[in-house]
């Protein structure tokens, strides 16, 4: 772990309201969708402040945030904040974890992991394990290319304002799945 006083990357989850409720779910997911947000910190910035005030480096709808959280811990991430956010008039809530990732490579691994995970409809422990192992062992060069591609696509596609931008970005993860023969 690099100097913990000066972490480079941090991530958090935010629930954003869906345009119309998704009836497949009955809890918070019925009305909201979780987004994962990654932030880059400058020297001396405090993660909690940055999350409040600045634009994320990349943010996209994430699925299986429990696994994303677990993987962050596995990468040496540190949970520095956890607020319970109540959703008005619905009686539901969620935990907003703020996690600081120890270094850039961890951030990239995590980004690629959450991207891939978000393309699954169903995810169990065994699949999570195999994906985790692939991510942990992935060559840093490939990792750099793939994650940079995702960030670039995010920046290009977001400004177009098309509602399908996320699908185009998630293609990076789908390519990864093809590459590693994951189904």
């Amino acid at each position: 772990m690099t100097d913990s006083k000066n972490p480079l990357y941090t991530l958090t989850f935010t629930a954003r309201k869906r345009r119309r409720p998704y009836n497949r779910y009955s809890g918070i997911l019925r009305t909201h969708r979780f987004y994962i947000e990654y932030y880059r910190l400058l020297d001396g910035q405090k993660p909690l402040e940055v999350i409040e005030k600045s634009e994320p480096l990349i943010a996209f709808p994430v699925r299986f945030k429990e696994f994303a959280l677990e993987f962050a811990r596995e990468l040496g991430g540190e949970v520095i904040g956890n607020r319970r956010i109540e959703i008005a008039r619905s009686g539901t809530y969620y935990d907003k974890h703020v996690i600081v990732l120890p270094n850039e490579i961890a951030f990239r691994r995590h980004l690629l992991f959450t991207l891939t995970v978000s393309t699954y409809r169903n995810l169990g422990e065994a699949r999570f394990n195999s994906l985790k192992n692939i991510m942990l062992a992935m060559n840093a060069n490939l990792l750099n290319i793939m994650s940079t591609m995702a960030i670039d696509r995010y920046n290009e596609l977001r400004i177009t304002g098309k509602p399908t931008w996320m699908w185009y970005m998630l293609r990076v993860a789908r390519a990864l799945k093809v590459l590693y023969r994951l189904d």
Partner: peptide, 21 residues
């Protein structure tokens, strides 16, 4: 409608426990 294998309660995905079915 869905089934999942997990090692602990903590890792039950919201996508699964929040399902209507």
């Amino acid at each position: 409608s869905s089934s999942v294998v997990v090692k602990s309660v903590r890792s039950v995905p919201g996508e699964v426990s929040g399902l209507r079915d």
